[in-house]
Amino acid sequence: MRFLRLYLRSRRVPLALATATAAITGVWALCLVYSDTPTIDAKGVSLTVMLAVAALAPTLGGADDALDQTASINWPTRRAGHLLLVATAIVALLLLSTLTDARFAPVGLVLRNTAGLLGLAALGAALFGTARSWIAPLTWTLVSVLPLVHASPEVSMQILGWLVQPAGTTAATTCAAVLGVTGLLAYALRGCPRHPAAETAPDR
Rank of each mutant, 00 (worst) to 15 (best):
L60Y: 00
A52C: 10
R190N: 12
S46E: 02
L67T: 10
P76W: 05
L148Q: 13
I90W: 06
C175A: 15
R204A: 15
V110S: 10
L118R: 05
L96W: 12
L148K: 00
G62F: 02
P14M: 01
V143I: 14
L127M: 12
H150Y: 11
G191T: 07
G161F: 04
P166W: 07
L138Q: 01
R12Q: 13
W134R: 08
A66C: 02
G191F: 07
A63E: 14
Q165W: 05
P14E: 02
A151C: 00
N74Q: 12
R112F: 12
Q165C: 01
L83N: 03
V86W: 09
M1H: 15
A92H: 03
A186S: 03
Q165M: 14
L51G: 10
L60N: 02
A176Y: 11
E199T: 04
T59G: 07
L120P: 04
D36I: 06
L47H: 06
R190Q: 13
Q69T: 11
A42H: 10
G180Y: 07
T70G: 12
T48Y: 09
F128T: 11
T48N: 02
A171E: 08
P202G: 00
L127Q: 06
P76Y: 03
W134C: 01
A66G: 02
R2D: 14
L47G: 11
R132S: 14
V164E: 07
A89F: 14
P14N: 06
W162E: 03
A42E: 11
F128C: 03
S10T: 11
T88W: 14
L51T: 03
K43H: 13
P196L: 05
L189Y: 12
V149N: 02
S97Q: 06
P166Q: 08
T59A: 07
T169R: 07
S46Y: 08
T200W: 10
L99S: 11
M1P: 12
A71K: 10
Y34N: 07
G108M: 03
R204G: 13
R79L: 05
L95F: 08
A18D: 03
R190D: 08
A186V: 05
T182A: 15
L95H: 02
F3H: 14
L160F: 06
V145S: 01
M157F: 13
L189T: 09
